[in-house]
Computed example of a mutant assay.
Amino acid sequence: MRAAAVQLNATADVAANVRAADEHVRAAAAGGAELIVLPEKWMALGTPDDLRAAAEPLDGPVVTWARDIARELGVDLVAGSISERVDGREKLRNTSLHIGPDGEIKAAYRKIHMFDVVVDGTEYRESAAEEPGDEIVTSATAGGVQLGMSICYDLRFPELYRELAMRGARILLVPAAFTLATTRDHWEVLVRARAIEEQAFVVAANQIGSHPGGMRSGGRSLIVDPWGLVLATAPDRVGHVAADLDLEAQARIRRELPSLANARLVEAQA
C-alpha cells in the first residue's frame, strides 16, 4: 500500500484552503497513493472566531468536497480534521473523517485530548472553542487494512495508541498542527515512539508556517514504519510526501518481536 501525508499552510480562508488541499491530494493520488492524510484543521486554522466562522456539519460543503474527491480519485482519504458544528452544542468538535473510495464516510473521530498548554510563552486554550470527544475510533481501508485515528496533541498519550493497536490498527493516523517549538524538539521522537511501541505504520501530516492568531506550525510531516524507521519526511514547504507500506514486513515484525502479544496489564496492589 502506498500512503501520503499532505502538508499545508491553512489560514482562515476556507476556499483557499480547499483549493490547496485539492491540488495536493490530486498530486499524491497521481503518484500512486491509495491512502492520503490531510493535516489537522486543513479547512481553516486561526482564532476561535475564525474556527466558528468556518465550522460546518458533516453534510456541509467542505465535507462534500472531501467525499467527492475521494470518490473521483478512488482513494481512502483521511480529511485530517475539520471544525464540526453540532446541533444543540455551543462548542465545536475537532473532527477527523475517514472517507472511502466510494465517497462514503467510514469513520468520524472527535479529538479526545484538548490542547490547553503554554508553549514558548504562548498560551493555547483549545477547550475555549471546542469540546473533547469521548470515543476511540478505528476504521478500515477499502482493502481491509485497519486504521487507528487520532489528532495532534493525542500523540502525547501513548495509552490511546496502545488501545488502537489492541483493536487491530496497523496504520496510525496523526493529522496535526504541531507548534514550531514542539515540532522542532518533540515531533519526530513522539511519532517514532508510537510506531515502535505499537509496531504500526504512522502517517503524520502536519501544518507548516504561520497562521492567523500568531500561531506557527513546524511541518516535517512523517511516514514511519513499525520498526521506527522514517520512510519519508516533508521538506519545509507546502506539499506532500509518500511511501510504500510493507504490510508483510509489519506482520513479520509483530511475529518475531511480539511485544503486543506479550503485553501484560498488571493492576496496582492496594
Rank of each mutant, 00 (worst) to 15 (best):
M1G: 00
R2F: 06
R2Y: 00
A5R: 07
Q7N: 07
N9V: 05
A12P: 01
H24E: 10
A27W: 02
A30K: 08
G31C: 03
L35Y: 09
L35S: 04
L38C: 07
A44N: 10
L45S: 15
G46A: 13
P48N: 15
D50I: 13
A54Y: 14
A55F: 06
P61Y: 14
A66T: 03
R67Y: 03
D68E: 13
D68K: 15
D68P: 01
V75E: 01
D76S: 10
L77Q: 01
L77W: 00
V78A: 09
A79E: 13
D102V: 01
I105D: 02
I105V: 12
I105E: 01
I105F: 02
I105S: 02
K106S: 07
A107T: 02
M114K: 10
V117Q: 11
V119E: 13
G121W: 06
E123G: 04
G133C: 12
G133K: 00
E135I: 11
G144S: 06
Y153N: 10
D154V: 14
L155Q: 14
F157A: 10
F157K: 09
L160P: 01
Y161G: 12
Y161K: 06
A165M: 08
R167G: 09
A169L: 11
V174L: 13
A176F: 05
T179N: 06
L180R: 14
A181C: 01
T183N: 14
R184A: 12
V189C: 02
R192E: 12
R192D: 07
R194W: 08
E197G: 03
V202H: 04
S210Y: 07
G213V: 13
S217G: 14
G219Q: 10
S221E: 02
I223A: 01
P226S: 11
V230M: 04
D236Y: 11
V238R: 02
H240M: 01
V241R: 00
A242P: 05
A243M: 01
D244E: 11
L247H: 07
E248A: 12
Q250E: 11
R254D: 03
R254L: 03
R254A: 12
R254V: 11
E256A: 02
L260T: 05
A263V: 12
L265T: 13
Q269N: 12
